[in-house]
């Protein structure tokens, strides 16, 4: 099958020639996933902190719940969001299905358990002394919270990168709730699925290369920050 070699060459050509259609898809992918992470982070960090810091009934249940949701299949999230946003669904009036906000919503739901779970671990690893010391120095709770966040920032950054890695490469939910509409909701993974089904491998390979390079960079950063996190403790 010599088409693979030819398609790969053409893929590199597409990437380096700056093919507008290709880079538009890459842009949509990053825009949607960055928005999802940015929206998910504040509540996820608060939730992770609450789980690590406060004793309240149901805490253990919530921790195992967020750990369970880590392995939630993306298509289940996709189905849930689809049913919520569909015209017959409870939020149908928002008319969000097959738009970028719908994809953002699905990706938030996908990233949230990772952020909470890894964030919880980071806060757990943070020293109780940090919180106590700050409080005894008369620093108000809100500012103390931000100081502790600062102390575990590498762990939280690692959580963010892991969450981003999951959603940027995720195809099932994006396809279901985004609809893979060209110029609107077609992102890297759904475009790969489509181009492959059209037999247009070079586009698919080019986008695959982007994902691979990104996965590599994310993993390097993750390892770096996890290393830093350990040293900083």
């Amino acid at each position: 099958m010599n088409t693979l070699g030819a398609a790969t060459l053409e893929a590199f050509a597409l990437l380096f020639r700056g093919d507008a259609g290709l880079w538009e898809i890459i842009g949509i992918s990053f825009r949607v996933s960055c928005a999802a992470i940015a929206i998910a982070i504040p509540p996820a960090v608060l939730a992770a902190f609450a789980l690590a810091h406060f004793e309240f009934p149901g805490r253990r249940l919530l921790i195992s719940l967020s750990n369970t949701l880590l392995s939630l299949p993306a298509v289940v999230v996709g189905l849930t969001v689809y049913l919520l946003l569909s015209r017959q669904g409870p939020l149908g009036d928002w008319r969000l299905l097959f738009t970028q906000p719908a994809m953002v919503l699905a990706q938030i739901l996908l990233a949230f358990p990772i952020l909470v779970s890894m964030g919880h671990a980071a806060f757990q690893a943070a020293d109780r002394r940090a919180w106590e010391t700050a409080r005894m120095l008369g620093i108000p709770p809100a500012r103390t919270f931000f100081m502790v966040v600062g102390e575990v920032r590498f762990g939280l950054l690692a959580a963010m990168l892991a969450g981003f890695g999951r959603i940027i490469a995720e195809v099932g939910a994006s396809m279901m709730v985004g609809g893979n509409i060209l110029h609107h909701t077609r992102n890297i993974p759904t475009a790969i699925a489509l181009e492959t089904s059209k037999g247009n491998f070079s586009q698919g390979i080019a986008l695959g290369i982007v994902l691979l390079v990104m996965a590599f960079v994310l993993n390097m950063l993750l390892q770096y920050f996890q290393g830093r996190g350990r040293i900083a403790l």
């Binding site: 020293d127 106590e132 409080r135 600062g150």
Partner: peptide, 26 residues
């Protein structure tokens, strides 16, 4: 008690940053 009593841990906790910043917190 938390406001008036200062407890110093056996291994005192230092926040990220310089010594000056750690003092500034007080």
């Amino acid at each position: 008690l938390q406001r008036r009593v200062m407890y110093l841990h056996q291994a005192p906790y230092m926040f990220e940053g310089s010594v000056a910043r750690n003092l500034e917190l007080a």
